[in-house]
Amino acid sequence: MLDAPKSDRKLVAVENLKMHFPIHTGLFRRHTGDVKAVDGVSFDIYEGETLGLVGESGCGKSTCGRAVLRLYDITDGSINIDGDEIGSTPQGQLRGKRPTMQMVFQDPQASLNPRMTVQAIIQEPLDEHTNLSKEEKRAKVLDLMDQVGLNRKFAGRYPHAFSGGQRQRIGIARALALNPKFIVCDEPIAALDVSIQAQVVNLLEDLQQEFGLTYLFISHDLSMVRHIATRVAVMYLGKIVELATREALYDAPLHPYTKALLSAVPEPDPDLHDTMDRTILTGDVPSPANPPKGCNFCTRCPAVMDICKQEDPEYREVLPGQFVACHHYNGITDAAEIIAASEAQ
């Protein structure tokens, strides 16, 4: 991303967001537990920036993105988008707010109705939320197709006639139709081939420049997030373990999980593979229905201490702009000591 002039205005402020899904078992479908998919996350997104949200599958990153847009009725917490608190607003009243916040979905195959033409798909938000005339809508759709690099001759075709990358462009055009301020991109490139991924990412960046969009970019691809995001949040088992600017997170990660995650990414450079010192995590991610006591990462952490198995670490700003939830940084505020604590792990 071309680092756009960052504004200091918080477009999105999320505080202690929780999204629990109940588990019902037995003959009477009794409520016996909860899948704590998102368990108390807080972050802000500044106007015009891209916040990357990374983590492994099942860590709750997609649920978090959907919850922020109130596609779910959240369990707890507050969500403030563009000055309006929407955390507890009933779904009916959210409708007026929807044009400001849109979403691009992961699977362009499943998120486009196969029985609607491209014209109808992109036009649908206009039908729902505007009073434009038929001609105005048609002109707007063709404009949008130009903007996302789709040939306007294909407006009458159906989604199956398009390749994966083009379908994702249709999804992006639909999200743009109502001139939103904030777009949640939920793994928009995961289903695409490498050579097509770069095309879609460049398009998202161009659109951001042109319309001053703010993105929450959800992905498991750490190298692509490094490219597109201004700041990055790392999630593990329903919680954010570290949030920092792109440079800080990739060059000097503090949380042991971030370190392990970064070292697990295979780089396209054979020399690097020989020289680098890898941290290979053992075991799997615990179930979010039954998270371990203490720190969620304590079962796999290479630098685990006794306190980690007892108490949940506090998520706090240890360095300016760098938030971490880890006991290794307890009670330290000095930058040099933080770095020493990080290296000692």
Partner: peptide
């Protein structure tokens, strides 16, 4: 698979 599992 996830990256950390892929590394394994």
């Amino acid at each position: 698979l996830d990256v950390t599992i892929q590394a394994q």
